[in-house]
Design a protein around this nucleic acid. Structure first.
Length: 303
RNA sequence: GCACGGGUGGCAGAGCGGUCAAUUGCAAUGGACUGUAAAUCCAUCGACCUAUGGUCUACGAAGGUUCAAAUCCUUCCCCGUGCA
């Protein structure tokens, strides 16, 4: 049985300093970086997503950045497909793939080889279901696949988006296939390195980074994106800086509120990221000042 | 000084005699997540308890009316606006 290739994963909440660490490790261990960020895949979303600059890359190749136009929809499936291709390519050159990012869902799907039902979005059906209440959606799903509905937890069964997706799959397949973790095909041997700092410090970092982004022209970036055709609606979907600055540019929000609101929204996001990561016991957690410990952990892992 | 309007839980802001520990939004805290994931959604949110119920403390302060007050009356304190 061939051994699985080793792969390094750097994850953690937004603004902890993952990118820097990834570059340093890449330099030290002959690696290349594969981003795992659901917003950095889009071209033109630079300042607002905190995308690494060419200079900051220090010569290390980065993959999964700028792979789609922001007007297009991108999904986990797209991500996994393309990221796998990048990883194969990196491995073929005998380099270490380093996954770096904060989108837990993408990382999990990629590393654990989650199998998704091969059912794409059904725009007509989505349109038809769009205005329906949670109650209505639930009863539609109940007719199609009662088992699925009763297996959904309190939160999902009240979540229109999840309900619609289930209906979408059930409409195509007759029912929604249950999750079968044992069917997952993990292609790699992963080392998960989690980077985090204490809450108050993370809040400070988020604020400082936000102010800096505004300073270097984030509002301009967003203005230009709209000028070149990216709709306000799409920006709203993109979330955080794109959502709230778009609202500001549409005069739905005061300048004075923007920092305050965005700061707490980004903080909420960081917390959501952490509730995702907390569940994964494979992650070894470090603070950014534990560089030496991290290096040692990677060394051990690679030998 | 006079005349109005107002003082409600961390904030904003409903309620205007009983069903009010007090609608709602925000914040806070915890959580969910298998093709939108920076998205979307859920729960808790005065204190204490022998906890699908009970006790206590709460709606600027102090009194009063009432079986019953955040809700009515009186006085006081504070804030906003108008007239002096």
């Amino acid at each position: 049985m061939p051994t699985k290739p080793k792969i390094l994963i750097i994850l953690g909440p937004t603004a902890v300093g993952k990118s820097d660490l990834a570059v340093e490790l890449a330099l030290e261990f002959n690696g290349e970086i594969v981003s795992a960020d659901s917003r950095q895949v889009y071209t033109g979303l630079n300042i607002g997503t905190g995308k690494i600059t060419t200079e900051e890359m220090r010569g290390i190749p980065h993959h999964m950045l700028d792979v789609v136009d922001p007007s297009q929809r991108f999904s986990v499936i797209d991500y996994v497909k393309q990221a796998e291709r990048a990883i194969t390519d990196i491995l073929s050159r005998n380099k270490l793939p380093i996954i770096c990012g904060g989108t837990g869902f993408y990382i999990q799907a990629l590393i654990d080889g989650t199998l998704f039902p091969d059912i794409g979005p059904n725009p007509e059906l989505q349109k038809e279901l769009a205005g329906k209440s949670v109650i209505e959606l639930a009863s539609i799903l109940k007719k199609l696949d009662p088992a699925k509905l009763s297996s959904m937890n309190e939160s999902d069964s009240k979540n229109p988006r999840r309900l619609i997706r289930a209906i979408e799959i059930a409409t195509a397949l007759g029912s929604v296939p249950p999750h079968t973790p044992d069917k997952h095909v993990s292609l790699y041997e992963p080392l998960f390195i989690g980077l985090n700092v204490e809450a108050e410090l993370l809040k400070e970092r988020i604020r400082a980074r936000l102010l800096k982004r505004i300073d270097v022209g984030m509002v301009e970036e967003i203005k230009n994106l709209h000028a070149t055709g990216l709709s306000w609606e799409r920006m709203d979907e993109l979330g955080l800086e794109y959502r709230y600055i778009a609202r500001f540019l549409q005069n739905q929000m005061n300048k004075g509120d923007i920092i305050r609101v965005l700061h707490t929204q980004i903080w909420h996001y960081a917390k959501r990221q952490m509730t995702w990561f907390k569940k994964d016991t494979r992650i070894k957690w470090f603070t950014p000042d534990q560089k030496q410990d991290i290096t040692n952990a990677v060394k051990t892992f690679l030998t």
